[in-house]
Amino acid sequence: MNIDSAAIERTVHAAVTRTKHEAGPLLEILHAVQNELGCVPAAAVTLIADSLNLSRAEVHGVVSFYHHFREQPAGSCVVKLCRAEACQAMNGDALASFATRHLGVEFGATRADGAVTLENVYCLGNCACAPSMTINGQLYGRANPKLLEELVSAVENA
């Protein structure tokens, strides 16, 4: 998937302008870019580096440090499963194996058809209602294979 370079320029410019009076604005700019474009493409890294008088390596170093930032667009349905202890204690690992089987994709990957991305997440703060997951940013507790199946197919059919 290619993102239009004019859109990248516009987005970076807007984010840099909006945060120019703030100290240490890089993370905020990266959030703004990813919220708008779905990822932080390489072309954006160059533009951000130029605007902040940083090297490309410095900006890339920040993008790659944080699990949240992605350099490639995600699938149209992003499933994040909590893999931390409280969810493990409530059969989270079984739910995770079901997810890879049912969705046909490994953790940390996007399915070849671009429809589904499956990711690990470590704690959603929903530990008393474990296991937890998010689907396109929406949080679900007391998750189970049936719920996962229903919610993903609802997104796919939407």
Binding site: E85, C87, Y122, G125, C127
Partner: peptide, 11 residues
């Protein structure tokens, strides 16, 4: 940055 599994009081 309440990241510990099993915690949610900050939230």
């Amino acid at each position: 940055d309440e990241g510990d599994s099993g915690t949610f009081s900050d939230r």
